[in-house]
């Protein structure tokens, strides 16, 4: 079924957005500068920039940014020429004011995201950006939680609002390649000419395999991060992705050597510790909990001396969605209480 050589796959680089999760949203001016230059040189199609949960998300709840959204975007805007500047927008965190700021700065691509069942909260924002004639993609986060029919209904809504395409996010790193095949091929078949993207996390070591599967199933946009620099166990490692795509003769605009440079630059200047699949990340993926939770889970678990694995499974049981970081403290405190009850 593979349609090789047909159309170039659009590569969206989330290093400066998802990677921000890995350093508690502390990315600085110099890092933005150096990485944007490298990504532009490599021919990446879109560079996504901002707080880990997108614009307007700097908060105690998720983590306070080092730089204001507008600052980050201005810095990158000055550098990016051919490469498009993109942002992640979650209604409920971000408002029209944030979108207006981004439009004024000159953001090119708006990715309007909701939990995988809540597409209708993106209606106003997608329609607004459509009217402003900017590229707008609908994003369904935590998409492992529902089946292909639900995803299709939600995607249809985003299409109706005026989105130019849809990105499925495996925000928890919980997909298996068979899940990708089932969902992506169903959506691309049903939605015909509507471009589909896929955003993977590596909790179960499957980010590259899932991204390849997505392309083989009809996806035309793939997200990646240099050195996999992203929330939790990290994302699809973009330089490996390009290498694998080259081997499979899947075409992109990205230059292999220069994207390898991006990886080295990220390692040298951005990454504190290279994302690896820690035991806790594995459990995070298994329990289907948002990857961005891991730093908060570890912090609260250490303080209250509970097992972070138990915390993840409990969060999974409670169906936590992205943005519900405040639930972690509640779960940790309850686990601690029940542990004490057990001892006495």
């Amino acid at each position: 079924m593979q349609k090789k050589n047909k159309k170039k796959i659009i590569i969206s680089d989330a290093t400066l957005r998802d990677g921000n999760h890995a350093i508690k949203h502390q990315i600085n001016r110099a890092q933005l500068n150096i990485y944007c230059k490298a990504a532009e040189r490599a021919g990446v199609d879109i560079v996504e920039v901002g707080h880990g949960n997108g614009i307007g998300a700097s908060s105690i709840q998720v983590g306070l940014s080092n730089l204001a959204d507008t600052k980050m975007l201005e810095i990158c805007r000055k550098i990016l020429k051919k490469t498009k500047l993109g942002i992640h927008v979650i209604p409920g965190f971000a408002t029209k004011n944030d979108i207006d700021n981004a439009i004024n700065i000159g953001v090119d691509v708006f990715r309007i995201a909701s939990h995988c069942t809540e597409a209708d909260i993106t209606q106003k924002h997608i329609e607004y950006i459509r009217k402003k004639n900017k590229m707008v993609l609908g994003v369904l986060m935590m998409s492992h939680m529902v089946n292909k029919n639900v995803l299709y209904d939600q995607a249809k809504k985003m299409k109706q609002y005026g989105a130019d395409g849809l990105v499925l996010m495996d925000s928890a790193g919980a997909y298996l390649p068979s899940d990708v095949k089932e969902k992506v091929s169903y959506l691309s078949r049903k939605l015909k000419k509507f471009p589909i993207g896929f955003h993977a996390h590596n909790n179960l070591g499957l980010a590259i395999a899932n991204s390849v599967e997505a392309v083989n199933s009809g996806a035309s946009m793939i997200d990646g991060c240099a050195r996999g620099f992203g929330a939790g166990a990290g994302n699809t490692q973009i330089e490996v992705l390009i290498a694998v795509f080259n081997k499979l003769k899947i075409r992109t605009n990205v230059d292999l050597y220069k994207i390898l440079d991006c990886g080295d630059i990220a390692e040298k200047f951005l990454v504190k510790s290279i994302p690896s699949i820690s035991s806790t990340s594995v459990v995070s993926g298994l329990s289907g909990v948002f990857s961005g939770f891991i730093k908060h889970v570890i912090k609260h678990s250490e303080k209250h001396k509970v097992n972070p694995r138990d915390v993840f499974f409990e969060l999974g049981k409670r169906n936590a969605v992205a943005g519900q970081e405040d639930l972690i403290l509640d779960v940790v405190k309850n686990l601690k209480k029940s542990k004490q009850n057990f001892i006495y």
Binding site: Q61, G92, R318, V321, Q324, D330
Partner: peptide
Amino acid sequence: CKAILNLNPAFPHINMETTTYAK
């Protein structure tokens, strides 16, 4: 100040919960 709203589709339906922080 900042206000955030999440919708959670879990079944059985969750109750409304509000966390308030002060720095």
